[in-house]
Amino acid sequence: MSLDFVFMKQHVPEFFDALILTLNIGLIGIMISVFIGVFNNFIYLMNNKLLSRIIRAYTEVSRNTPFLIQLFFLYFALPSIGIKLSGFATAVIGLSFLGGGYMTETFRSGIEAVSKNQVEAGLSIGLSKMEVLRYIVLPQAVNITIPALITNFIFLLKETSVVSAIAVKELIFTTTSLIAIYYKTYEMLLLLTIFYIILFLPISLLFTFVERRMKYGQYGS
């Protein structure tokens, strides 16, 4: 078997465009997911039973339904009630919905790991609940949840591969489209592998560095 490297070189720009789109979807979805996770935990700390039940229902739905089904609902079902989303918007909203559930549970576990004595001490010196959350609970919770957050970030980036099902021109969609047109299966799969390595390897190394800095920073360096 011989690979057509000239053909592969011709289509590298298309893969770069797909890589940028994949990264944009992933990063925007992750940022919104983190916001959702933090916001939901603010609601939890308010001890409002109704809102807490709604958030629990949301986390169960988001984490226990396939991402593909969520995308199909947004892309194909919503237009029937007059809401039509572009493929990019659908991908971002879907990824945010999925990630928000995971981030909510990740932050919740981190917050619950903070000693209640510290919370009570903060309240006893006159801090409001919001100030206790901001200055005492969240800094420690973030440090505790760094490994889980990194796992979630990588998981959500990998889930961007699913959005090819709604014709978003990310890496998987680009690969399958070119295979369907030119029948250069091995060349396209090799390019796909290379570009996923380009995407994930630097991010993985960066997250590992950040995790180590956060881990040892609390003890001094």
Rank of each mutant, 00 (worst) to 15 (best):
Y75M: 13
P13T: 00
P66G: 09
G26Q: 05
N24C: 12
S33M: 04
L45D: 12
R53Y: 14
I54E: 07
I30R: 02
L27G: 06
N47A: 12
A57Y: 12
K9P: 10
F76W: 13
F73V: 01
S62F: 05
S52W: 01
E14A: 12
N47H: 14
K49D: 08
S80R: 15
F76D: 08
V12D: 09
R53P: 05
V61Q: 09
R53T: 11
L68S: 08
L45V: 04
I81S: 13
L23H: 08
G37Y: 00
R53A: 15
R63N: 03
R56W: 15
A18D: 06
S62C: 03
A18E: 04
E14K: 13
L71V: 00
S52E: 13
I20E: 09
N41H: 00
T59F: 13
V38T: 08
G29Y: 01
L78T: 03
F76S: 10
L23D: 06
P79N: 02
I81N: 10
F73W: 07
A57F: 15
I20P: 10
T65P: 13
F76Y: 15
I20H: 08
L50K: 09
L27H: 07
F16P: 05
R56Q: 15
N47E: 14
P66H: 02
Y44M: 14
S33V: 01
I55S: 09
L74H: 05
L78R: 04
N64C: 02
Q10F: 06
S80T: 14
N41E: 02
F67P: 05
N24I: 15
F16L: 11
T22H: 05
R56M: 14
P79T: 00
P13C: 00
Y44L: 13
I32F: 13
Y44Q: 11
I28Y: 12
I69K: 06
